[in-house]
Structure formats: structure tokens, C-alpha cells
Simulated assay, not measured.
Amino acid sequence: MTEKTFKQRVRDEAIHFEEVYADFKNDILARGFAGQSAWEHLFFVPFGNLLPPEKPSDEARRALNVPHRYDAARRTIQNLGLDELLVGPLLKNDLRISALLEIGLLTPDETVPPSGKHDGEFGRLVKRLKAVPDDPIFWRALLEVFCRAFISTPGQRTWKLEDYIELAFDLDEIRRESPAARWKAKSAKEKLRRRPYVERYKKEKLGIVGEDRIRRITDLIGPMDDGALERLKKLFPEPFFEVDDRRWRRQTKDSHGAVGLLDIGETVGDALTAVTEPEDDG
């Protein structure tokens, strides 16, 4: 017998959608919600260290294969190891880190990677907590993962819009390195497979860039000339500036290093403190 695909199993479960919907609705009505909204209750599923003690009825339910309304979510989180990920809030114990985060020279993921398996170079100065059940971002991310899995097709990872914009910046940078030479997709492809470009695409798990990716963005914005990035900016102004800002942060970090950035953070922190401190009238 052929094993059912993930999409087929989801469709089988969707047959019971009305029953599941009614179960959640009845639970909401029975509780009355003194001081807590229905939205908060529906998305508060205890997991990790907040799991309640198991009751005899829980074991009995499992024996009868009758799931509690939150069992599937809990088991999924545990099986995927999401309750062990460090994706929660940051605890900062160094004002320099706070200042760098404030002005955008560092992002939370650059101080402590979400997985927590490899500390960033600023990891000793900041700590990330594990996710908690009342984190709406956690639940939205979990929903997104399952929705993407449902509509996914076999093949290479799909690029985001920001990935293509980043590629356009790199292609323009390659073009400006040899202004006298005629720009060719084939030669640009070869340069993208060398440093510093290849490390970036490997890190982002985008795979080796081929001519098809290059043509996709150049067909959209036209020839790689002095106006290429301007045309791209007019098409997608908000993500364009986000990528531009990200590249600026990366270049600044590369040029200053960790010690240099902390010096910047100290200077900015002192300036911010001076602005907030009241003036001495004496």
C-alpha cells in the first residue's frame, strides 16, 4: 500500500474541520473568559517547561486514541524540537549591544543565532530565551511552516523577493568592477561562484546561482547598466531599501570587526544617555 503524502493526510484531517471548529468554540463559550480574550486562549498551548502535570484522563485519552484539542500541537512542537529553540526575547546585559541594536548595526539574530547551537561573536553579551506559549510570532511561524509545506512542490528552494534584490546588487557590483568590459551573464555567474559572493549564497542556503536566476532578475529590470538598480527601486521600494540597509550593516561589520562595533556602541550609548539625562541647572 502506498504511503499517503503530507498533503493527502492534511486533506483527510480537513474532513473533520467542522468538528474541530465546534470543539474550540464550545471550549471558549464554557470558559467565559474573565480577563482573557478568546484569541489569547486559542493560541495559548502549554509546551516545554510550562507543560501541566499529566492527569489520568490524559493517559486514558491516548489509550482510546481520542486526542485532546491541544495534543496535536504539543506533540508536533516536541517532535520538531521547536520547544528547544532559542527564538524568544533577548536579555541584554551590555549597553553597547543595546545601542548597536537601537541604531540597526546589529540585529538580534546576529548577536545570538536562533538555534543557539553556535554563539555569535557577541553571544557572551546577550542571551536569547526559549519561546513561550503566549508568543504570537511562534504560532504564526508554525502555521506558516505547515501552510508552506502543504503547497510546496519538489525541487530547489524558492527564492524570496529579497533574495533576487540581493542578487541584483551583487550583479551591479560585479558590473562596476569592470566598467570597460561588456557585461555578460555567463561571466557574472562565474564571479558569483567565487568569494565573497559564494559564501553568502551558501550561508543563505540558496544554492549555486545559475544563469536562469540571473536572467530572471535582468529580464525584469532590463540591462545591467547605470540605471538598473534605480529601475529595481521603483518596482519594489520598501524591500529594496531593506536589502540596501542590510548590505550596509554587513559591510560596516566586516570593516570594523567585533571590537570596532563595540566601540561604536559605546560611543552611541554615551550619546543617547547624554540626551536623556536632565541638564544641571546649578
Rank of each mutant, 00 (worst) to 15 (best):
T2E: 12
E3A: 13
F6C: 02
K7S: 11
D12F: 05
A14G: 01
E19W: 11
Y21H: 14
L29K: 10
A30E: 10
A30Y: 11
F33M: 12
S37P: 02
W39N: 11
L42M: 09
V45C: 04
L50S: 11
L50D: 10
P52L: 07
K55M: 04
S57N: 06
D58L: 00
L64G: 05
P67C: 08
Q78F: 05
L80Q: 14
G81R: 11
G81F: 01
G81L: 04
L82T: 11
D83A: 09
E84H: 08
L90Y: 01
L90H: 04
L91Y: 13
A99T: 06
E102D: 07
L105S: 06
L106H: 00
P108H: 13
T111L: 00
V112E: 06
P113V: 12
P114I: 03
D119R: 06
G120M: 02
E121F: 07
L125F: 08
R128N: 01
V132K: 10
D135F: 07
I137R: 05
F138T: 09
W139F: 03
C147D: 15
F150P: 00
S152W: 02
T153K: 05
T153E: 09
Q156T: 13
Q156R: 05
K160W: 15
K160N: 13
D163N: 13
D170I: 12
D172H: 06
E173C: 14
R175F: 12
R175H: 05
W183T: 06
W183D: 03
K186A: 10
A188S: 07
K189S: 03
K191V: 14
L192T: 15
R195G: 09
E199I: 12
R200A: 08
L206E: 04
G207R: 02
I208C: 07
E211K: 08
T218D: 09
L220W: 03
I221F: 02
I221G: 12
G222S: 06
P223E: 10
G227K: 13
R231P: 08
R231S: 15
K233M: 04
K234C: 07
F236S: 08
P237D: 15
E238H: 05
F240Q: 11
F240W: 15
R246G: 13
Q251T: 11
H256C: 09
H256A: 08
G260P: 09
L261P: 02
D270T: 14
A271W: 01
L272Q: 01
A274Y: 09
P278H: 04
D281E: 14
